[in-house]
Computed example of a mutant assay.
Amino acid sequence: QLDRFAGVVSHDLRNPLNVASGSMQLARESGDPTHFDRAERAHDRMERLIDGLLTLATEGEDVTERRPVSLAETARAAWGTVATEDATLTVDGDATVTADPNRLQQLLENLYRNSVDHGGDAVAVRVAVTDDGFLIEDDGPGIPPSVREDVLQPGYTTEADGSGIGLMIVSHVADAHDWSLAIGEGSQGGARFRFDGVATPE
């Protein structure tokens, strides 16, 4: 349990840390103050992650806060805290879902990073609303059917420098919300992660 927790900490904090470091370097090189804004958002995200991980350590993997959240706003906020290079994000539609906003953003960040890691710097990522939830897909190489269950297991990775943590976190966040997760092929041939059973405010 301790080893897994340490892996989650190092994995999820690395995303916004890389964004903050890159933004500071761009600010120094260009003199453009807007890069400081992105660095500040990344630092804010790290603070929220630390708070959330401390909650995970003390309260377990249950979701402790559920409230109405805009899927589109959370999807765009998550994109801003991940080093996405030349990748593009399309958000089709919006829905208000009942979720822990920090854990939902954590789920999206890990899926974005997975797309960039496996689909390349210019991968196209799409978030869309479905009848019973939402999906995230990309135009990368996809995930072969034979390993779609394996990729959610701790430590599974096909990358030499991969951690095998990101998709495990996605699975845990979905389970904590009682969402079902199905991995399949996206509309552009890449990976698709579909979440069903997503509650909406009454």
Rank of each mutant, 00 (worst) to 15 (best):
11 H>V: 15
192 R>N: 07
29 E>G: 02
167 L>R: 08
79 W>S: 07
67 R>I: 05
97 V>D: 08
62 D>G: 15
82 V>W: 00
189 G>F: 08
89 L>I: 04
133 G>M: 01
198 V>Y: 03
196 D>H: 03
43 H>Y: 15
115 S>Y: 00
165 I>T: 13
191 A>W: 01
9 V>N: 07
100 D>W: 01
54 L>Y: 09
138 D>L: 06
154 P>F: 01
29 E>A: 06
111 L>F: 03
177 H>D: 05
164 G>F: 07
86 D>N: 03
200 T>F: 00
99 A>I: 04
122 A>P: 12
85 E>T: 08
109 E>A: 07
98 T>H: 03
95 A>K: 12
108 L>P: 11
32 D>E: 10
137 E>H: 03
61 E>Q: 11
123 V>F: 05
2 L>C: 01
12 D>H: 14
149 E>D: 15
143 I>R: 09
172 H>W: 06
23 S>M: 12
57 A>L: 12
164 G>C: 06
148 R>V: 10
199 A>D: 13
186 G>I: 13
161 D>H: 11
102 N>I: 13
153 Q>N: 11
21 S>G: 08
114 N>R: 08
144 P>T: 10
150 D>E: 14
184 G>D: 02
15 N>I: 06
181 L>Y: 01
104 L>Q: 01
38 R>A: 06
62 D>E: 12
127 V>F: 05
107 L>W: 04
92 D>F: 00
45 R>T: 14
143 I>K: 09
42 A>T: 09
83 A>R: 05
192 R>G: 00
65 E>I: 14
200 T>I: 12
7 G>W: 06
129 V>W: 04
84 T>S: 06
70 S>N: 02
197 G>H: 00
12 D>R: 05
1 Q>I: 11
123 V>E: 10
75 A>W: 02
95 A>R: 15
198 V>W: 06
87 A>T: 09
9 V>W: 13
131 D>Q: 11
123 V>A: 03
12 D>I: 11
103 R>C: 02
41 R>V: 11
150 D>W: 04
36 F>L: 14
75 A>M: 07
46 M>C: 10
19 V>I: 11
37 D>N: 09
41 R>S: 08
110 N>G: 01
176 A>G: 13
13 L>E: 02
30 S>D: 05
101 P>C: 05
26 L>G: 00
178 D>S: 14
187 S>C: 01
54 L>Q: 10
121 D>K: 07
88 T>R: 13
16 P>H: 08
99 A>D: 02
8 V>N: 04
192 R>C: 03
200 T>A: 07
23 S>Q: 14
79 W>L: 04
57 A>D: 06
67 R>P: 07
173 V>C: 00
77 A>T: 15
154 P>V: 12
135 L>Q: 07
58 T>D: 13
73 E>A: 09
43 H>C: 14
62 D>K: 10
126 R>D: 12
136 I>G: 04
58 T>E: 14
112 Y>M: 13
124 A>F: 00
85 E>Q: 12
